[in-house]
């Protein structure tokens, strides 16, 4: 084979033919996946929001929302992390992959980090990561980062309400999602 043929082959449909249509592969994979056990009843879709909250501020803010009985939609599930700086962007991809419709990373306000500087790294990392997500086609409303202090129970409830509403409006997430067509 001449170089040119090889070069062309790597660029065009030839390669795909050898691979088989991507769609076919995806379907084959999905057919082999068991339906998710214990999934919510299919009749009414409810958004699922995964929130990574730092222990010292945002998790405490969520606790305060609780002690103050400030209601918000039950679609939010909080994962406790010591610091928002602990949150690897890959966790967010995993959450979307596993079926989350929206993801929040919440930490102390810049300057108030319990560990003094963790959230500054969070800020950089997720300013970039948010752009990456949007660039590959994840709707902007699905990923959020917020600063919520331990005294901001009302803000926690409000943010959760807003995000749930926004994600509900966007509908079920399909980007990055594993075995998306099973449902």
């Amino acid at each position: 084979m001449s170089i040119r043929a090889a070069a062309a082959g790597s660029q065009t449909a030839e390669a795909e033919e050898v691979l088989g249509p991507a769609e076919a592969r995806r379907q084959a994979h999905q057919a082999s996946q068991p339906a998710a056990a214990g999934a919510p009843a299919p009749q009414a879709w409810e958004p699922l929001i995964v929130a990574f909250c730092c222990n010292w501020c945002s998790y405490a803010g969520a606790d305060l929302a609780g002690t103050s009985r400030l209601g918000y939609p039950p679609n939010v599930r909080v994962i406790r992390v010591p610091c928002s700086g602990r949150v690897n962007p890959l966790f967010i991809v995993k959450a979307f992959q596993s079926g989350a419709d929206g993801v929040l990373v919440a930490g102390c306000h810049p300057g108030d980090c319990h560990y003094s500087t963790g959230n500054y790294f969070t800020r950089r990392r997720f300013l970039l990561f948010r752009r990456l997500l949007e660039f590959i086609g994840v709707e902007p409303g699905r990923f959020h980062a917020r600063w919520i202090s331990g005294s901001e129970g009302p803000k926690f409830a409000q943010v959760m309400t807003e995000i749930t509403q926004e994600v509900r409006r966007l509908g079920p997430n399909r980007m990055l999602r594993d075995a998306r067509d099973v449902q």
């Binding site: 994979h29 890959l90 991809v93 990456l132 594993d178």
Partner: peptide
């Protein structure tokens, strides 16, 4: 971190990881 299945979701995980 990366599942073994070669499907779109895992491919995306792979490329987002590499991009970051």
């Amino acid at each position: 971190w990366l599942g073994k299945a070669v499907n779109l979701a895992e491919n995306q995980f792979f490329h987002l990881t590499r991009a970051m």
